[in-house]
Simulated scan of single mutants.
Amino acid sequence: MSVLRGLEGQALLAQLRGWALAEGFSQIGVADVDLGSAEAGLQSWLLNGFHGSMDYMARHGLKRARPAELVPGTVRVITARLDYLPRAAPAEWQAAEWQRLSRPAEAVVSIYARGRDYHKVMRNRLQRVADRLAEAVGPFGHRVFTDSAPVLEVELAAKSGIGWRGKHTLALHREGGSMFFLGEIYVDLPLPLTEPVPPHCGSCSACIDVCPTQAIVAPYRLDARRCISYLTIEHDGPIPLELRAAMGNRIYGCDDCQLACPWNKYAQRAPLPDFDARAPLDGATLAELWRWDEAEFLRRTEGSAIRRIGHARWRRNLAVAMGNALRAGVSAEQGEGLREALQSERDAADVLLREHLDWALSQGD
């Protein structure tokens, strides 16, 4: 392959894996750019409105399934897996997370968001891998992505052998579960392809059965409008009344489908300290987080993915969780503290927050 300066493709792929491992990635794959088989499913998902208010999903349309249109000249996509389960996670981490959800006064943040913003971590490390590749083969066309553009990440991961698409729509790996981030490098180099792996979900429907809001409407089909991750992160309007109770004490994201997945007993601990849980986001009570004004919210979430939702949406989520805590029957002392906290903010709240505050206060009646 003259374009690779005489290096054998497989030897270069081995080097690529070594560079990626040095940057903390657990796995590297290479996919071609033919995602035609995914186009019908993407179109159907959009036509059904399952993307909710994520207008950018519809705006980019089929470009997601056409990497060479997104980045002209692309012939391969390097895919990367970065495990994020915190290094200190206990052996029975799934059971520990279910216990968190059973304590209504505790605020639960999705595991991936308890540490540093993965966008920043992955982008920098992927770029360093690309730089190493350029040192080996000379300048080449490429672009790095980390959940930052119209990319069908799971489809590319499946094509390249990073894992298979689970029924919850996330990528799954037999030796890593689903607790990992995906990143991509679009390249104009004809690298050798890596083989996909067969799916291993079988007849299991644990993720579908456990979803609190029944957002997984069919195997491999998610209605984002019902998903707690979408509602607490992407959605900036009122939380639908019929879904509030099911949110429980989840204030940013939801891990239930991953907690229920049998393959996640093999989830790997993060190789990097970046994903260690930050104390305020790991076991704080709803009342403690409610006391953060905007300045403290910004200070506490510096370098965190949580900052992107802003203080107003953060408080909306907390209000719903506090109402759920009141309804769940917390101690008299906790209940009184929650009611006082909610009531004290009502008069100064904007219309959106006030409606959620009133709903929350009504749950303790």
Rank of each mutant, 00 (worst) to 15 (best):
I162W: 01
F181R: 05
Y186V: 07
E97V: 04
G166D: 00
E106M: 14
R103Y: 03
Q99R: 10
R103K: 13
L152V: 06
R125A: 10
G176S: 08
L101W: 08
R143A: 15
A149G: 15
I162A: 12
A134N: 07
F180A: 09
L189V: 13
L170D: 13
T146R: 05
G115H: 01
V144H: 03
G163V: 01
V108H: 15
A107V: 13
Y112I: 00
A136F: 13
I185H: 03
K159N: 11
D117V: 07
E92V: 03
E175K: 14
T169R: 02
M122Q: 12
K167T: 00
G183L: 05
N124E: 12
R132N: 15
P104Q: 12
W98K: 13
R132S: 15
P190Y: 11
H168L: 02
A105E: 13
R114P: 09
Y186M: 07
D147T: 04
E175F: 10
W93G: 10
Q127E: 14
K167I: 00
L152I: 04
R132G: 15
L189R: 12
L191T: 02
E155Y: 02
L133E: 09
A95Y: 11
A157Y: 01
R128P: 02
V109L: 08
L133N: 10
L172D: 00
I185D: 02
S178R: 01
R165K: 14
A96R: 14
A113Y: 14
P190L: 07
D131T: 14
R123P: 03
P190S: 04
L152H: 01
E153A: 09
Q99E: 11
